[in-house]
């Protein structure tokens, strides 16, 4: 599994994990993110159960695993958080921040010790060891209970499935040519995102943010101008119900 430090600030760092060549062939490649301070860490969309050992092995290059005090799940899908039962055994002191809507469902993955902190529909602000993260509503993008995470200092937006595609393990870490990248994300957005209204609401919400990097849970990261290009493109395409996908 590749480990890339995508941000290094005064008080915290962002590390992206992905492109796991050891993962079983038929499961989709995923990006996991660790935000760490000198004392604590939060894992964003920690990944599926199949990736647990690779993730654990990768994380301990950066911090002791018991310093991971928080987990975040953007929504309920298995590639996002089916590893929860194993994290529950590993960091039983941690808190899982996830949509309130999915609590009863996510607990099926195994959540005996970890504390479930339900994020309300309107989102919330979370503080950890001096840093602040905003849980931004992204409902129906694609899940009916869904959040993005914004870091105002690093100017990074973790967008979950928004901006993602059914990418391969050898895809580049960053989008190099946005227009060449479109074919790998177009059908994904048209099919997975169910609502035009939800799409516009999310775009409007994130356009107000100052974003340097938009980090999806699959595929390549959008940086600089490519963030605006992606938002413009997403606004321009029709998604969801009623759309015929060839």
């Amino acid at each position: 599994m590749k480990k890339v430090k995508i941000y290094e600030g005064l008080h915290h760092e962002w590390i992206m994990f992905g492109r796991d060549v050891e993962k079983p062939e038929k499961i989709i490649d995923t990006n996991q993110y660790l935000i760490k301070t000198s004392r604590e860490g939060i894992l964003l969309d920690p990944g599926g159960i199949e990736l647990f050992s690779s993730m654990l092995a990768a994380i301990v290059h950066f911090m002791p695993v018991d310093q991971i005090t928080h987990l975040f799940a953007s929504h309920q899908d298995p590639d996002i958080i089916s590893s929860l039962g194993l994290w529950d055994k590993t960091i039983s002191h941690a808190t899982l921040h996830a949509p309130w809507l999915w609590e009863g469902f996510l607990r099926h993955y195994g959540c005996d010790s970890i504390t479930y902190a339900a994020i309300p529909d309107e989102g919330s602000i979370f503080k950890m060891d001096g840093i602040e993260l905003h849980f931004i509503p992204a409902h129906y993008m694609h899940s009916s209970g869904n959040f993005s995470v914004y870091d105002p200092v690093a100017k990074i937006l973790f967008s979950g499935d928004i901006g993602a595609g059914l990418n391969k393990v050898d895809d580049p870490m960053f989008v190099e040519d946005f227009y060449a990248h479109i074919p790998s994300i177009k059908k994904f957005h048209q099919r997975w995102m169910p609502s035009e209204r939800a799409k516009f609401a999310w775009i409007e919400r994130v356009r107000r943010l100052d974003i340097d990097m938009l980090c999806p849970q699959h595929g390549s990261i959008y940086k600089g101008e490519n963030v605006t290009r992606f938002l413009d493109w997403l606004e321009s395409i029709e998604v969801g119900i009623g759309l015929r996908i060839d």
């Binding site: 647990f52 654990l56 290059h61 002791p64 590993t90």
Partner: peptide, 19 residues
């Protein structure tokens, strides 16, 4: 088995003994 696999893959890691 997952822990053993992680152990095997984190031999060089600075905090490999943290789990």
């Amino acid at each position: 088995s997952q822990y053993k696999k992680a152990k095997e893959n984190s031999k060089e890691a600075l905090y490999g003994d943290s789990f």
